[in-house]
Structure formats: C-alpha cells, structure tokens
Design a protein around this nucleic acid. Sequence first.
DNA 1: TCGGGACTGGACGATTTGGTCCAGTCTGTG
DNA 2: CACAGACTGGACCAAATCGTCCAGTCCCGA
Lengths: 219, 219
Amino acid sequence: MAVRGPEKGSARLTARGAATRRRIVATAADLMFRQGVAATPLDQVVDACGISKSQLYHYFPDKDALVTEVIAMREHLMVSAQKPQLEQVRSMRDLERWRDSLLTGLRERGLPYKCPIGSLANELSSRCDDARQSLAGIFGAWQGLIADGLARMREAGELDPGADPEELAVAVIAALQGGYLLAETMQDEQPFVVALDMAFDHVKAHVKTPVADLTQSDN
Amino acid sequence: MAVRGPEKGSARLTARGAATRRRIVATAADLMFRQGVAATPLDQVVDACGISKSQLYHYFPDKDALVTEVIAMREHLMVSAQKPQLEQVRSMRDLERWRDSLLTGLRERGLPYKCPIGSLANELSSRCDDARQSLAGIFGAWQGLIADGLARMREAGELDPGADPEELAVAVIAALQGGYLLAETMQDEQPFVVALDMAFDHVKAHVKTPVADLTQSDN
DNA sequence: TCGGGACTGGACGATTTGGTCCAGTCTGTG
DNA sequence: CACAGACTGGACCAAATCGTCCAGTCCCGA
C-alpha cells in the first residue's frame, strides 16, 4: 500500500490509453466504495470495466497502486464537488446552501449512506500508513475549504472574532462523518440530518448577533 | 455472517470450556478491532489465543459465528462500561463527568483512536445485513442510555422541556463517532476533543438557564 | 505501411484462507 | 475407574485471490 509518485508508464500514454486508465480507477473507486477495498477483488474490477486482466496490470503495478489512485481520485472528486460552493461562502446563508446541497446529495444518491472518504479512512488507516496519511491530507484539505469560508465570514463580520475557523471546520466534518456512519448503520437519513443540524447550531453559536438573538450563545 | 441464536453446543459446557470459549471471543475481538474483521485470519486468532484450530471449530461453526459473538461481546462491554455512569446522570455536571471519562479513556488506550463499535459498523454494515442490524441495535442501546440520562435531566428541570433526548443522544453519538474517525486518521486526539465539545455545547444549548450565567455570553 | 501502444484471453503459479478430519492425549467428575 | 468433554497437532482440501506471462490481434499516427 505504498503511495507512489506519478506512474512509471504514464509518460507515453495515448489519449485512448489514458481514458482506459481513468475508467479503471473510476470503476475500482465505485466498487471499493460500495464493498470495501479488501472485499473488492481485481477480477471484479476487470469484469465491471470490461477489460482483460493483463490490461489492468499494464497500467498498475499492483493493487496498492490502484488503491492509491483511487484515493487520489476521491480527493479530486471531493475538491471539485465542494470547492466551487465553499469558495463562495461569505455568510451563514451561503454556508446553509452548502449544507442543503450535502443533504440533497445524500438523498439523491440513496443507499449506501456513506462518505467515500470516511469509509476508505476507516478501512485503510489501520492497515496502511501511506494511505492513512493521504486520507488525512484529504480531510485536511476539506477542513481548509470549510475553514476558509468561515474565515471569510469572520472577516465579513458575520462570525465572532474569537471563533476559530479551523476548529469549527473540524467539528463540522466530524459531525458529517458520524452522521454518515449512523445513517448507514441504521439505514436512516435522520441521524445524518440531526448531526448536520448540530454542527450548524454550533457554527451559529459563533455568529455575531446582528440583532437580538434568540438562541442564547454558550461560551 | 448470519446471526445465530445461542450456540448449538453451548448446552453441555464445562466451566473450563466456557472460559476457553470466552477467551477466543475476547482475543478475536481485540485482533479484529485493531486490524479489521476481514484482515484477521482465524489462524492468527488461534495463535494469539494459544489454542489449536480444531478447538476453535469445536466452539464455533464458522468465522461468521465468531464475528457474531464478537459483536455481542462488544455490546456487552459497551453497556457494562457506559451504563453505570449514564444511569447516574441527572444533571449537566453528571453528564460532563461521563464526557471526561470518555476522554481519559481515549487517552489511556492511546492509538488506535477508534471506536470498537464504529469500526465494526463501518466494515460490516455494507457486507452483512445481519451484522449491520446487530450494530444498529448497539447504537440504539447506546442512544437509549444517553437519552434516558437526558430525560432525567429534563425531569429534574435542568433541560428545556422542548429538548428531545433521543435526538440529542443521536447527535452526541454522531459527534463521538466522527471524532474517533478523524482522530484515528489524523493520529491526533484534537478532533475528538473538538467534536465532543461541539456535542456538549449542543446539549448545553438546551439547558434551562438557571441563573445569570457566569460564562460570558459573547455579545 | 510500419511500429508501438492498446488490448484479448486464458493458462499458470504462489499464497492465503476458511474449513475438515482424525488419531490420540489430558483432565475433571460421578 | 470410566467417561465426556477439552485439547493437541498437523495433514489435508477447496476456493479465492494476487500476480505473471505470452501469443497474438487491433488501432492509430508518423
């Protein structure tokens, strides 16, 4: 499970070859998301992808390398899905729009109620330190995106100067992850909603009271 | 991964036999906690336990049965660890004592920063519906213990009558789980602390304001 | 047209793992 | 003692899986 640099053979790659390569990673990512990494045999990837086994090994030296790419793709997908919205965040209203999109996303995808990153982290962090570090990096990037939005809110005077964007972002992600896990286990979206609401109440508790605020602010 | 009833052979069991059986489950639980269920071969359980393979199969028909028992043991451990404290909860102060014990527990155990139940849920809920349901039951039991405490707080007038103990309990557990996952992935207890603090702020937000609060309410 | 990467398809080896089987020993108790 | 259950120890099977290898075809651009 070593995290390698750019692939050896990636230098000379036809457009067609690159497309196939991406297809393999995408297929593997999907299967591994639903079944887990260990529970996804390469033969299944091969079948689902409609390629031959030798082709898979033509692009990837071993399963670990494939997993590494899957993780990288997950980071890319997360960033390209979250960044556009989070970058725009300058007010609580913006942040709530983001929350709403998380919710509708969960509902549209339906089961399984899992976070692609969280489930990878859970399975791999104990077994492969390279993967764990990559996943930690993804969480860090996510945290950064959220924290930046919160920081902008603070600059805009929406957030209390004493509020720590990084810490709030960690709390939000933790709530998200916990919500995903409970929702998946209970097969019910309610825990996810409850967790998200908690996180947003927590953020709101650091909102500079514009007018008389009903929700009393604890510390 | 079928969840069976009481074992077939459990009828005639010497004290010695029962002890060995428990030892097997405990050993398996520990290994599976640290490495994951799939990543724990039975041979390793056998070695770590100092028994012979035939003995393992003398007590358990297959690996699934062993996993089922491991889950049951996890429930038992959770309840016997949490119930005594949570049963006593009648005030915010009591609840905070419980939180403190969670924290010191995490610190004493050290790495891995995982929840034995959460990690099982994450790995098994996608792959075995029987296990998933058992784990959901454990989460439900945990939720119940917390919710009961919160309900007593409400009866005691410490909690707002409008507060929903069940919902608050779900939020607390979600924060816990998310905190564990982040802490484990980042190899840092801070996310766990942050998540727990969020959860407790959330509960406190439903505390009936007793008198003038000393903790400054930030404007 | 020629060459190289893309790709097939399946044989093959090695390893791991779950699971079976059994001959025989140990141990505690009625 | 006799017997039942506890236990050893390893041989053994079958399946899954990772990974290798190769002969040969297909496709595309210089």
